[in-house]
């Protein structure tokens, strides 16, 4: 989508909102869980069959649900946590039968791998990492990236998980001397890893060698950007960022997601598309997820908004349902579904 100025999107795109096709196909709620903090959909082997399962997390339990006929769900296993609450689910993109979770109070204190029972044994929790963990991301090839500490005492590592859920191999990445906020994988480049930093940079590592390849300053217009995904194309990196701290009073509307193009050779970058809210729609980015060319976000207003990143245009809006604001939103790792959750534990599948 060509634009006149770097960093600015087509202004009319923000005005012309056309509701998209989000169709509710299923709902699930765990009667034993009073709240929910996260959801994920991934493949799991259930009785020898590869099933598209849903994983839900409330403060002190993570549950695995298998699909039944007619879009119903049956809980088949739960992992309980008694001491430290669950903060988020950390799925590993191409791994079946295992999911990771981050536990902590406000900041992540532990990362654990969860496995189902087998051969009469109990389900397993394997401690993978502990400490003051700033950021975590599940990567392809059974790898998990995490960072702990800040600035000079920062440690960035990638562990490869064994079949048993434990750590098989650990590699330290060269620290960027700027606090890592979020990681993003580069689609199509399994040996590259990106991170956004507290000093408004995007850093690039070589995962095979641990080398820090580049630090690209992306400007000070937006603080504490979250990087979600990156795509390598024709010598450029296209990076999807979201902006929890963006002002609501920008001329083109409230910016939520931004697609930038970065030349890793020259460290120059430019805006490609700005995804902002339709005029009159209040709110800032609270949390969200990106899959392919679709980005979804829960806004501070309690609404979920979906954009087509290639068009920089809102594709759908999902106002609070049953009088309750949305708390989190995730794209399914198994199908073209959007999973939206509410604090009371209700999960809606669109």
């Amino acid at each position: 989508s060509p634009v006149q100025q770097p960093g600015m999107a087509d202004a009319p795109a923000c005005d012309s909102f056309v509701p998209g096709d989000l169709r509710l196909v299923s709902r699930l709620k765990d009667p034993s869980a009073p709240c929910a903090v996260d959801v994920s959909a991934l493949w799991w082997d259930v009785a020898g069959l590869k099933e598209p399962c849903i994983v839900t997390a409330c403060e002190y339990a993570v549950s695995l649900w298998k699909p039944l006929d007619t879009w119903q769900w049956e809980k088949i296993y739960s992992w309980d946590f008694t001491e430290v609450p669950v903060l988020q689910i950390v799925p590993l993109p191409d791994v079946r039968d295992l999911v990771c979770v981050a536990l902590g109070n406000l900041e992540i204190q532990e990362i654990r791998a969860l496995l189902c029972p087998s051969d009469g044994e109990a389900g397993k929790q394997v401690l993978l990492s502990s400490g003051h963990i700033q950021a975590v991301l599940g990567l392809t090839k059974r790898r998990l990236a995490s960072s702990r500490g800040t600035l000079c005492d920062q440690q960035v590592e990638v562990v490869t998980l064994a079949e048993s859920g434990g750590s098989k191999e650990k590699r330290l990445l060269m620290p960027p001397e700027e606090t890592v906020l979020t990681f993003a994988e580069v689609q199509g480049m399994q040996d590259a890893l990106l991170a956004s930093t507290a000093a408004n940079s995007i850093v690039i590592w070589n995962l095979k060698t641990g080398q820090l390849l580049r630090k690209v300053h992306i400007g000070d217009s937006y603080q504490a950007s979250v990087c979600h995904k990156a795509y390598s194309e024709m010598g450029l990196l296209f990076v999807v960022l979201s902006h929890p701290c963006a002002k609501e009073s920008e001329p083109a509307g409230s910016p939520v997601f931004r697609l930038i193009a970065m030349n890793p050779k020259t460290t120059l970058s430019a805006g490609v598309a700005l995804c902002c809210l339709p005029r009159g729609q209040p709110g800032r980015f609270l949390e969200g997820d990106v899959k392919g060319n679709l980005a979804a976000a829960v806004l501070t207003s309690g609404t979920v908004a979906v954009w087509n990143l290639l068009l920089g245009r809102p594709a759908a809006l999902l106002p609070p349902a049953s009088g309750q604001s949305w708390s989190f939103v995730k794209w399914s790792g198994t199908h073209s579904h959007l999973l939206a959750g509410q604090k009371d534990g209700s999960i809606f599948v669109y």
Partner: peptide
């Protein structure tokens, strides 16, 4: 954005940067 905004582009940037960066 046009390519001119971003300077010369290399399709092998990952390999080139890996050969230059300190280990």
């Amino acid at each position: 954005c046009s390519q001119a905004d971003l300077g010369p582009i290399s399709l092998n940037w990952f390999e080139e940067l890996s050969s230059e960066a300190p280990l």
